[in-house]
Design a protein around this nucleic acid. Structure first.
Length: 599
DNA sequence: TGCACCAGCGCC
DNA sequence: AAACGGCGCTGATGCA
């Protein structure tokens, strides 16, 4: 049966609740309506044939849904003059906030399609993640968030419908408008919950426009547009270096693999086969994993390095890892750059996650693949010993704070504390061990694990009794750490979880002791880095782009002739962020300039 | 054939 | 009682 809708030309349709805009002459009335408020609800639909392979540089926005508390406009970009849409968007977003769900997606397309930037946002997905306190079970899709915060179910069946066809269906247009309605309800319910316990903060543009006062939310919302630019900037790759490394390693792999297969009839990449071979053929005792299977990881195999097959095995794996990583990078190169993606809150602690390709786990040996083009240089900055500084601040441990304040080498100090030697007499071996201890013990590592950890990661062999002794000495000297651990332990004996908080106030729920002592430190680190990046972004000019972030490291690509200026802006930002997060401990960082991503 | 899960390993 | 945590990518494995 033909409905009234289907018999009318779409241009004439005005629905209850929204207006479908297909004619430039309607734009002024849209502007007039939207100008009434400080913020606009936004969503977009992108015309793509393959949503799994959506391309921000070539795919086009089909619909732009805009709304305030009263009206909703569904703007059909395919039916309007692009120049007019561009100036319309620039106009309407100037001095106005935008509310949306997963806005990184929409903002990237607005930037590539119309060169429009938005700097004041409230993202309901990010807000949901903050309010979930790191829950791993909470989902953060618009549908899930709408259910949780507005108590309303929304139908996403048309999300993957055909947004390329010249005539969209009535259902598609309704679907597009419904998202805006959902956003209105979600936003209101979130705002109250985010502001709980917070009074008016410094009056930033974001806090004024959205009436938002939660410092973590303010930070994340300020960070979002920065992340948009980071993803669109990409990272410059020297494809020649990449290819020659790949070729070289593939050759090595062929030889090693041939050699191995010739002599041993097992798959070197099957942990099971490798373990069975070692256990049954060579009578080697292997430790077991949690699930009960034998472990064949390199750190275990290294004990049998005198065996030819073990030596070969380790080499094969090492080379294969390098090849995998090179292929991963190469698979994403477009015109000499990789445009990696990030999850803004990728870990429950607030850390980001990087993917396609993962730019946060590039082996040190492959960083040289990333090189700037002529006329540009990388500014590579990283905070020094940041987690230890954050831990000192967090626990308020006087000995550790004093050490940092006096500019002592903390690893050396710990070495002297645990071995009983004088600070001046600490050997480099002692210091290496102390490094393992500092990183392990503050996060609740047991003496038993410390033995293994020191061996695997720092190449230091200690006995279990020594580990126990060091453990004892450590917690006797850094008293607050012991107290902190004990408090958390006894709390968790009475309750099934504990709410912990980062130095900026990011709330996280921990169910295990080790999580409870890890999360606030790791989370504070992510607060700090994001804050430094936001401050840099605020003061930088067009001559530099932030191109990568790796938890405590910032990589910037700068025009050569403004390097010095940008280094200064960056240093100020890192210092300022450091002072905001760390009140009792000084912050320290290194800054290097290079045409290669190396330290 | 595809999916879920795990082990292993790179980075912080 | 004992416990360091976080991530993504690859390939083997087992099951449908």
């Amino acid at each position: 049966m033909k409905s009234l809708f289907d018999s009318l030309p779409q241009e004439q349709i005005v629905y209850e609740g929204f207006k479908y805009i297909t004619d430039e002459k309607d734009i002024p009335s849209v502007i007039k309506e939207l100008e009434k408020d400080k913020y606009i609800y936004l969503d977009t639909e992108v015309a793509t044939k393959d949503l799994d392979n959506i391309d921000v540089f070539s795919d086009k926005i089909r619909l732009i849904q805009l709304g305030n508390e009263e009206k909703i406009f569904v703007i059909d970009a395919f039916k309007l003059n692009q120049t007019i849409v561009t100036s319309f968007l620039k106009d309407i977003f100037r001095d106005r906030g935008v509310i949306g769900h997963n806005l990184k997606f929409d903002l990237k397309f607005l930037k590539t399609n119309y060169n429009v930037s938005v700097d004041t946002v409230f993202d309901t997905m990010i807000a949901s993640q903050i309010l979930s306190k790191g829950s791993e079970t909470d989902r953060h899709s618009l549908k899930a968030v709408s259910n949780r915060f507005a108590g309303e179910d929304i139908d996403k069946k048309l999300q993957k419908s055909d947004w390329t066809s010249s005539t969209l269906t009535k259902d598609q247009l309704i679907y597009a408008a419904e998202d805006i309605k959902a956003l209105r309800k979600i936003f209101k319910s979130m705002l109250d919950r985010l502001n709980e316990g917070y009074t008016l903060q410094k009056s930033s543009k974001i806090s004024q426009i959205f009436n938002l006062h939660n410092p973590v939310a303010l930070l994340e919302m300020a960070f979002l547009p920065v992340l948009v630019d980071i993803e669109l900037a990409g990272m410059s790759v020297n494809i020649k270096v990449l290819n020659s490394l790949l070729e070289e390693n593939e050759k090595t792999f062929q030889n090693l693999y041939f050699e191995f297969k010739k002599n041993y009839q097992i798959d070197p990449f099957s942990p099971q086969q490798v373990a069975n071979y070692l256990v049954n053929k060579l009578n080697i005792k292997l430790p077991k994993t949690e699930k009960g299977s034998y472990s064949s990881q390199d750190s275990v195999l290294k004990n049998y390095i005198d065996l030819e097959e073990v030596r070969l095995l380790i080499s094969i794996r090492t080379v294969k890892k390098i090849i995998d990583k090179l292929r991963e990078i190469k698979g994403f190169v477009k015109d000499g750059r990789v445009y990696g993606e990030f999850r803004q809150i990728g870990a429950s602690t607030g850390r980001m996650a990087s993917m396609r390709p993962n730019l946060q786990n590039i082996p040190a040996s492959l960083k040289k693949v990333f090189q700037t083009e002529k006329g540009y240089k990388f500014i590579i900055a990283d905070y020094s010993q940041i987690e230890l500084r954050l831990a000192a601040e967090y626990t308020g441990d006087e000995n550790m704070i004093k050490a940092f304040s006096e500019g002592l080498d903390l690893h050396r100090l710990t070495a002297s504390v645990i071995t009983g030697r004088r600070y001046e007499d600490v050997s480099s071996e002692d210091r290496k061990l102390a490094k393992a201890i500092n990183f392990g013990l503050i996060y609740g590592m047991s003496p038993k694990s410390l033995v293994e950890y020191a061996k695997v990661n720092y190449d230091v062999e200690i006995s279990i009794d020594e580990a126990k002794e060091f453990h004892k000495n450590f917690f006797e000297y850094y008293k607050n750490f012991g107290q902190w651990h004990n408090t958390v332990k006894s709390y968790l004996q009475k309750h099934r979880n504990i709410e912990v908080s980062t130095l900026l106030g990011r709330k996280l729920l921990a169910y295990r002791f080790t999580d409870a002592v890890n999360y606030p430190i790791q989370g504070s680190g992510s607060d700090l880095l994001k804050m430094a990046v936001v401050l840099y972004y605020k003061n930088k000019d067009e001559s530099s782009k932030i191109v990568n972030l790796v938890h405590d490291e910032i990589v910037i690509e700068s025009q050569e002739d403004s390097i010095e200026k940008n280094v200064e802006i960056l240093k100020e930002a890192m210092e300022k962020a450091g002072k905001r997060v760390l009140k009792k401990v000084p912050v320290a960082f290194e800054v290097n300039i290079s045409n290669v991503w190396e330290k």
